[in-house]
Design a binder for these strands. Structure first.
Lengths: 218, 218
DNA sequence: TGTACATCAGTGAACGCGCGTTCACTGATGTAC
DNA sequence: TGTACATCAGTGAACGCGCGTTCACTGATGTAC
């Protein structure tokens, strides 16, 4: 059981180390630290303290503090994807294709914004500066329950837009960068930046206007 | 001479401490550190080292490391404003009002993006998370040469859009949040985020498409 | 079924690092007489 | 014009902190015979 996913799924082949799921416990402690304080709060010693082990015990499971942080980042991205999926799941499935496609793009966007507001620390961790390019591994998946990561979920929603004839196919390439930028920018300004006090209360409304802009502008 | 602006402007009244412009030297060292390494690189001891003074000498001019960082942030914001102004200055002044207004908004946006790419460290410092809300002081102005800070420059450009009849007045309130979000998001994704290698080369093109989207969507 | 052994997860102690910040000081300057 | 003095920018030394990381170890477990 060294992955944070379904404990009973892994067969006896090569998994299940001695007696510890220490890796899992450390990762969860790291996630909790990130939730509360963002990437800088992911401190190796504090994670081991919470796990009740000696500081150096972590080195049996992570190459160092950075490896732990990367695993936490992957988990945070996975949580972003889950938030998007949750938003998508609220859509009435019997919508006409064009409306469903538009609503899907909006749902992806508002899931993203909702996550940034509700899970600020994890959001900041997911998109923190890093020397290494984050990528999914078996140990550290970045996808949500549905198997797609945030970027892929957005891409899929945009594909629906094209399939439904709402967006001309020639505009499709690169469109995720534009949509993502808009939503990411608002999230960052509210979460980290100077807009928090200004926008905070009107967030829902501003978010919807931003999504209007993206919809029209794409 | 304890402000970084025109040394000869201040009269003899209450200015000019003993023999040091140490405050200025420390601030400039801090800016240089931020340029190279972003907000975390603004380290009090390193600034004093570069200034050739003892570490605690800084406390004559800044309340502590955070005060130095805030001063550096203000300078970074001022530099953003300057970049926007530089972009605005390239516009042909004899454009019809509607075109000039549109071009102004674009210029503000591309100045912002250009600055983020060219002065990544300062950009990250300007918009870094901070407990204190940054605000201009006499000691630490956030405006560019023209006297407006980045947010005000954007606001002024949008006002032109309304004055020229390009944007309906009822859409004006809050429009800076939408425009800023879009541009800020792209900047952050390229500067900090996972999009750097993906977008890097096509940055100019993606930036223009983003500004198209904003123009249409507003 | 019982025993010896290899494995390796977790221990205990220690390291060097660089940071921000404090204290009591010193000594060059500007000013009052 | 000369002298005593107050000011206060910068000094020197030290502090406690928490971090990531290393070393040689110990002792519970699974496995081979």
């Amino acid at each position: 059981m060294n992955t944070p996913t379904a404990p009973s799924a892994a067969p006896a082949v090569r998994s299940t180390y001695r007696h510890g799921d220490l890796r899992r416990v450390l990762l969860e402690a790291g996630i909790e630290l990130a939730r509360k304080g963002g990437p800088d709060a992911v401190v190796l010693r504090e994670a081991t303290r919470r796990a009740g082990v000696a500081p150096n015990a972590a080195y049996r499971h992570f190459a160092g503090r950075d490896a732990l942080l990367q695993a936490v980042r992957a988990a945070a991205l996975s949580a972003v994807a889950a938030a998007m999926e949750a938003e998508l799941a609220t859509l009435p499935p019997d919508l006409p294709p064009a409306d469903l496609a538009r609503a899907s793009v909006r749902a992806v966007g508002s899931g993203y914004l909702r996550f940034a507001l509700l899970e600020t620390g994890l959001f900041r961790t997911a998109f923190a500066r890093s020397d290494v390019l984050i990528q999914a591994t078996h140990e550290a998946p970045t996808a949500g329950p549905g198997g797609l990561n945030p970027f892929e979920l957005l891409g899929a929603a945009l594909d629906k837009l094209v399939a439904a004839g709402v967006m001309p196919p020639e505009r499709r390439p690169g469109a995720e960068f534009l949509a993502w930028s808009a939503v990411h920018g608002l999230a960052m300004l509210v979460v980290d930046g100077p807009l928090a006090p200004v926008i905070g209360p009107q967030m829902e409304q501003v978010g919807q206007r931003l999504l209007d802009m993206v919809e029209k502008g794409l």
